[in-house]
Design a protein around this nucleic acid. Structure first.
Lengths: 335, 335
DNA sequence: TTGAAAGCGCTAACAC
DNA sequence: GTGTTAGCGCTTTCAA
């Protein structure tokens, strides 16, 4: 108690006390420009002791940057997708923590990206990370037209877009192939909305897996574009009726619905039919029996996306597409 | 095509073209200060046509504001809490949309609020919304000490804190009372971590409901502070064994676990035992049978919290505590 | 009603 | 190696 000098101290204050110029202080902080070791240390020490914090507005105004990036995620996403976005965002924050940047939120909708537009046009951020990609993505097109750095989590067919994704095609191919090798002959694939790029990719991987095992794609069963729980349950019923030996679910949410449906119908897993999912999550990973799935690391996705964006902002070279790894977890559901 | 004048136009540019001073343009935009109707309109028209956008950094520097607020949520929250925070955040964004403010994310942990500290100390925001409250909340204490406007979603015992919450005490009391009136004699309450204020509040409401119906609190069963699924399942089993006629679950996540457990044990709802939850969500609202619950509106919570914060930032008077409504939904699970 | 000018806190030429 | 100075784009006295 006693001293109450909470008033924000500026670079000028520091300079005055130390008897140097503002420039010198600035140089000591930024590390740019020539400055004597002794002087620098003196400034740094003083700053440390007195908790000097640069004013982000002043810095931003001077160097024409905002020191904020935008994390744009669907505002209408399925409840079950939330954990993915949350973890991914944690990965982003982890990276920004070590920099001067912070993360601004934007909620985008499939047919309404006005929130994103506002943030970009008001120049509140230096770059954007798009949390997911659609087949015909308004956000991607808009950002390309605005000539602002951005990277997508998820793939896109648009040209000249920086993308970070797991190698889902390869992953799905591998899992499909392994299942076929385990002796399953007739595979069904139950999938979600076809305007999500990820669903297209997974389908492709699935078909590649079939081909690799010499199975005719047409011989197998595709139930795609399901939107509601009812759609999915219907697909599950049809798959069973058609004699499917193993049902591949395009994501964990679908998988959960299928499992619940089969349980209600008295269909045993893996006794009557095998089950596997192309995405693992808390939703299904404590299921009995344990489910065969693909595992990705959403946090790493956020990490890499953020690092990529920051490099992009700094004008550094980055690969157009970063493909991250995956794990194939073979479990009891496909014995 | 042809003209490519995407370079950001400034207040000075506008002034020059219109043959007025920067001051005049500024006044036309802000509405502050005296200015002729004709002049103002002329400026406004020009600005509209030429898509002038004020530079947030310059504005921020000049008036010492950041035009950002912080939305601080737990980084380690239970998967099942995510939808709540997401909806709540949508409510916040809805409000900021109509203002100059944007929303900066901060992930806080029960024992680590360094991310929040960084944002506050770097002066990146004008105020903070805390997404939840703990019994002994580091974030609340820290923010109080920093003398920066903030409001909590959820209640707290700390003095002089602006809070927005549903009237959970009253809600829980009402539901408990109604259940007792329906003929249930022996109620059990299964609850989560006791360091969450919301759980304390709900417990209190429960006990008030008992008292209101003339039931001795001690005569009933409290299973509190459960953290894991195993804890909850154990509690459910004990409640049944002890002859509970109706189990009240403190939230939807607990409720879901209890339902699944009972189903596995072959206990029928509501045949053998009634079930109710103090929080409704997608997790349970498509359950068969339908579950008796309390319903709140997370989005409205975000709305009110954000409006409150913005007023606080503007120095306006706001009530210290805003209590929002609720609905009691009596369903099949407590027939 | 309007304008000139100072200033917000920081950066970066350009001297010395 | 260090200081001077001129901005960055906006707000806000204070004059006119």
């Amino acid at each position: 108690m006693g001293e109450k000098e909470n008033k924000n101290i500026t670079i000028g204050d520091v300079a005055k006390v130390l008897g140097v110029s503002k420039t010198t202080v600035s140089r000591a902080i930024s590390g740019k420009g020539r400055i004597g070791d002794a002087t620098r240390q003196r400034v740094l020490d003083y700053i440390e002791e007195n908790h000097y914090r640069p004013n982000p507005m002043a810095k931003g105004l001077a160097d024409q940057k905002k020191y904020n990036i935008c994390w744009a995620i669907p505002g209408d996403s399925n409840v079950h997708e939330l954990p993915f976005f949350q973890r991914c965002m944690a990965g982003v924050c982890e990276v920004t923590m070590a920099t001067d940047y912070d993360v601004l939120i934007s909620l985008v909708y499939e047919d309404n990206i006005s929130h994103l537009k506002r943030i970009v046009e008001n120049r509140k951020v230096d770059g954007i990370i798009l949390g997911r990609t659609l087949v015909d993505d308004m956000s991607v097109k808009y950002l390309k037209s605005m000539d602002i750095p951005f990277v997508t989590v998820g793939s896109t067919k648009e040209k000249n877009v920086f993308q970070v994704d797991n190698d889902q095609e390869k992953a799905c191919k591998e899992l499909t192939f392994k299942l076929l090798n385990r002796g399953y002959k007739k595979l069904a694939l139950i999938g979600g909305p076809l305007n999500h790029v990820v669903n297209i990719t997974r389908q492709k991987g699935f078909e590649m897996g079939l081909k690799a095992a010499g199975v005719d794609v047409k011989a197998d069963m595709l139930f795609l574009g399901n939107k509601t729980v009812e759609d999915i349950e219907k697909a599950a019923t049809l798959a069973i009726k058609a004699g499917s030996e193993c049902i591949l679910c395009m994501d964990d949410s679908i998988c959960r619905d299928v499992i619940l449906k089969l349980r209600r119908e008295g269909v045993s897993i893996p006794g009557d039919v095998g089950i596997a999912s192309f995405y693992n999550s808390d939703l299904i990973n404590d299921n009995q029996p344990q489910i065969t799935t693909l595992e990705y690391d959403p946090k790493e996705l956020g990490n890499v996306a953020c690092k990529t964006l920051l490099k992009l902002i700094d004008g550094e070279d980055v690969p157009q597409k970063s493909l991250l790894g995956y794990k194939v977890l073979l479990k009891e559901s496909t014995q």
